[in-house]
Simulated assay, not measured.
Amino acid sequence: MDAALADILTGAWATLTRGAADRRSPVHTPVIASIGTSTGSDATPDARVMVLRHVDPAAATLRFHTDARSPKCRDLDGRPVAVLAYHPGQAVQLRLHGRARIVTQGPEADAAWAASTPFARRCYLAEHPPGTPLPAPGSGLPADVEGLKPSEARLLQARPHFALLLVTIHHIDWLHLAQTGHRRARFEAADGWRGRWLVP
Results as ranks from 00 to 15, higher is better:
D46E: 11
A20L: 04
T15M: 09
I32L: 15
R23W: 03
P26G: 05
R53D: 13
V51K: 07
R18Q: 04
G11I: 00
M50R: 12
A21N: 12
T39R: 15
A43D: 15
H28M: 00
V31H: 05
D22F: 00
I32K: 07
R23A: 09
H28E: 05
T37R: 11
S34Q: 07
T44G: 08
I32E: 08
G36D: 07
R53G: 08
G19H: 06
H28A: 09
R18K: 04
A43Q: 10
D22M: 02
A12N: 05
T37Q: 12
P26F: 00
I35V: 04
V31R: 04
H28I: 00
T29A: 14
S38D: 14
D46M: 07
V27R: 06
G19L: 08
T17M: 05
R23Y: 04
G19Q: 08
G19Y: 01
T39Q: 15
V49W: 07
W13L: 02
W13K: 05
T39G: 14
S38W: 14
P30H: 01
R23F: 03
R53W: 01
A33R: 05
S34K: 09
T15Y: 03
S34I: 01
D22L: 02
S25P: 04
A33Q: 13
A43V: 14
R23I: 08
T37Y: 14
M50L: 10
V31K: 04
P30Y: 00
G11E: 05
T15N: 09
A20P: 11
A43T: 07
D42W: 12
T29P: 13
G11F: 00
G36W: 05
G40Y: 04
M50K: 10
P26Q: 05
T15V: 09
G11C: 01
H28S: 09
R48F: 00
G36A: 15
S41Y: 04
A33N: 09
R18N: 12
H28T: 00
T29I: 10
G19F: 00
V31I: 12
L52F: 12
W13F: 00
D22E: 09
I35K: 11
L16G: 03
T17R: 10
M50A: 08
A21K: 15
A20D: 02
R23M: 11
S41L: 12
A43K: 09
A47I: 08
S38A: 14
I35S: 06
T10Q: 08
G36Y: 03
S34W: 07
A12R: 11
R18A: 05
T39S: 09
S41D: 14
P30M: 02
T37K: 15
P45H: 02
T39K: 11
R18H: 08
R53Q: 12
M50F: 10
A33V: 07
H28R: 11
P30W: 00
T17V: 08
S38M: 10
